[in-house]
Design a protein around this nucleic acid. Structure first.
Lengths: 229, 229
DNA sequence: CGTTATTGTGGAATGACATTCCATTTATGT
DNA sequence: ACATAAATGGAATGTCATTCCACAATAACG
């Protein structure tokens, strides 16, 4: 389908994969993951569901395409910093922020492993790990850990944000709720949870996120004590 | 609803939250996340959907309950090992394996943060971090990083397994597909992905997972060089 | 310039799903 | 026995992704 080998647009205001993906991104951003329905999409594009299916295989395909478009933008925009560590931090923070802004990206990333968006990220981080001088047999573990951490935390962070929004709480109220819930746990069974309950209330997710990145980077550099030249 | 203050079961073979949750777990395990429908559930329990709604608020509630049940089992079963690091590894591996066996647990964990299953895990790991002598102001970062890593990787691993099963590939074929896809990427744009493509083919997910855990543990112990007494 | 394939469109139809409603049935306290 | 509350199960509702198909616009060819 859609073989337009050497042909121009068939109709002036015609449908196209790009137009559909763009509309999907807008829909996802404004109404969240559940806001992307074929009904809403066809209304926005003033057409029928059938026409959309001519350009796109199914909803999952659509989600992947939207996800790829957004990730590709960020990964390419991220500025290259001075040191490999700084670059990794920048890439990580960039992803954290995109996923925070487009929470649906988090969920979509899991579904198609080994493909576009994931590979882009892998490549970017992998090059920095190489630049750090990590021996080749340890590179895979290092990149794997970083990616899992970055995607895992960003995703969870985005999910929390969405949950709070859904329940009509703002961030402060939400954290307050969690904090009080934890501090009311049984002191014998949950001493640790109680002890950190207070810290939850006014923590900065981005700071915590970066702290974790540094932790992993330190672990990567640690055995050879080679973190900085 | 369901106030049974000082009453016994009303009917012999009656419905109950537990029976419903148990059936849901079986259904989820046998037919995956999409296999849990109220239709299938009411058939298995030989009742109607309405009866189920008397005991359970909605599907999300049901999923959370099932998730909690499974996680609680594992967390409590996990043996306490000699050192805190070993215990953390054991807990981590335990979770990795449960999520691998019940892939739906991974997805369900994200949806209700700050509540039961998450807190159980947090507590368990937190206690070990304390035992490691990590200063209190760094405990939150350490536990957060570990949890994000454990849940993130386990989840992705389970998702991969499911994806492979859905597409009717076995693990080897799947890895092979990814590996060849990566090795056919543009060498200029994707040098790193190409370089690790080969390693993908015969790697052990559990080993990689533990390598990441060790990386983080090393990072936690590193600044004070206190990993082992 | 007209005819015919091909490529695209959009609306109606299908079947699965979560959830709600409500007329009944069952147990418990009086 | 009888009243009341707890439970039940099946039918009804509305939304969703996806498929189907009659049709329109374009290109390809004579």
């Amino acid at each position: 389908m859609a073989k337009r080998a050497h042909s121009v647009q068939r109709r002036e205001e015609s449908l196209s994969r790009e137009r559909i993906v763009e509309a999907s991104i807008q829909l996802l951003d404004s109404s969240g993951e559940e806001g992307l329905t074929f009904r809403a999409l066809s209304e926005r594009l003033s057409t029928g569901p059938g026409a959309i299916y001519w350009h796109i295989a199914n909803k999952s395909d659509l989600l992947t395409a939207a996800c790829d478009a957004v990730v590709a933008r960020t990964i390419n925009e991220t500025i290259v910093a001075r040191t490999p560590e700084a670059t990794i931090r920048a890439v990580a923070l960039g992803l954290f922020d995109v996923i925070d802004e487009h929470p649906w990206v988090g969920s979509a990333l899991t579904s198609v492993p080994g493909l576009s968006p994931i590979v882009r990220i892998l490549e970017r981080i992998g090059q920095q790990i190489r630049a750090l001088g990590v021996p080749e047999e340890q590179q895979w573990a290092a990149v794997g850990a970083l990616m899992a951490y970055i995607l895992g935390v960003s995703r969870q962070n985005a999910a929390n944000g969405q949950l709070a929004r859904t329940r009509g709480l703002d961030r402060a109220d939400f954290l307050d709720a969690v904090s009080t819930a934890w501090s009311q746990l049984d002191p014998k069974e949950y001493p640790f949870a109680r002890s950190v309950a207070g810290k939850i209330r006014d923590h900065d997710d981005r700071v915590d996120f970066l702290a974790g990145i540094d932790l992993i980077l330190r672990g990567i550099g640690s055995p050879r004590r080679r973190l900085r030249p």
